[in-house]
């Protein structure tokens, strides 16, 4: 009897103990579909850029970070520890799941192409930031935001590299996608899909001719690629 009595007293505590869970949350899946123009991207396949160079890639990795969702009232929900490394692993797709998203109506999503707010690799490993994942430069320089390793055959028939390793704060590019109408994220899982278009890294506004320049690492020209991927490289599919 005593037990039942003590249980009875404790009941309210039990119910309120997990108060954090009372706010309803859901999962948001972000899917990234790697493309080259209208084609599905594949490693080793030859594509043509705007300048007419035929090239292929053996590696393509992209960091996005600081994902935020804008609720219909304009309030921002920031995904914690939001550093995500995107690469075509499932065919040309990559999917990541954001858990504990408040179930609400949202009107926009925003994030950066690149890694926000890190200066070196000394800190803790947060999200997908990991110095051993082939995206780090060195101790002081931090992470590459976009990495593309590939090659093309030049006019003389020689193999040449297409090496795109872009970092530095100037190349951190904000992406904002307003939904055509508010979307209610609720239930088990919700999904947003994005295209990542390889060719957009080499055009609009700067058409990159690999015959002239095909090595973009920390040089001034790397910023041209940054300006290219600032817009049109990531597209929300609705």
């Amino acid at each position: 009897m005593k037990i039942i009595k003590s249980l009875f007293y404790l009941l309210p505590f039990i119910f309120f103990a997990c108060q954090d869970d009372i706010e309803e949350t859901t999962t948001l899946e972000l899917e990234f579909i790697h493309k080259a123009g209208n084609e599905d991207f594949e490693y080793g396949k030859i594509y043509q850029n705007n300048a007419g160079n035929e090239f292929s890639l053996r590696l393509w990795r992209t960091y996005i970070s600081d994902v935020k969702l804008m609720k219909s009232d304009g309030e921002l929900y920031a995904v914690p520890d939001s550093y995500h490394l995107i690469e075509p692993v499932d065919g040309n797709k990559f999917s990541l799941k954001l858990n504990q998203i408040p179930s609400e109506k949202y009107k926009a999503i925003q994030f950066y192409v690149g890694v926000v707010g890190e200066e070196n690799l000394s800190g803790e490993i947060v999200g997908d930031l990991d110095p051993s994942n082939n995206m780090a430069w060195n101790w002081t320089t931090g992470y590459k935001f976009i990495r593309m390793d590939g090659e093309f055959q030049d006019e003389l028939g020689n193999r040449r590299g297409v090496v795109v390793h872009i970092g530095k704060e100037i190349n951190l590019k904000p992406q904002v996608f307003n939904f055509q109408q508010d979307i209610n994220f609720s239930g088990q899982i919700n999904k947003l899909s994005f295209d990542l278009d390889l060719l957009e890294a080499f055009q609009n506004p700067h058409t990159i001719d690999f015959e002239v320049l095909s090595d973009f690492q920390f040089n001034d020209e790397a910023n041209l690629i940054g300006e290219n991927y600032a817009e049109g490289f990531v597209k929300l599919i609705e």
Binding site: P131, V163, H165, D215
Partner: peptide, 19 residues
């Protein structure tokens, strides 16, 4: 990674990554 005229480099870290 060397960039002619801009950066002198030994180009080792392109393959021998990070610390």
């Amino acid at each position: 990674h060397p960039i002619p005229g801009q950066l002198r480099g030994g180009n080792c870290g392109d393959c021998h990554l990070g610390p």
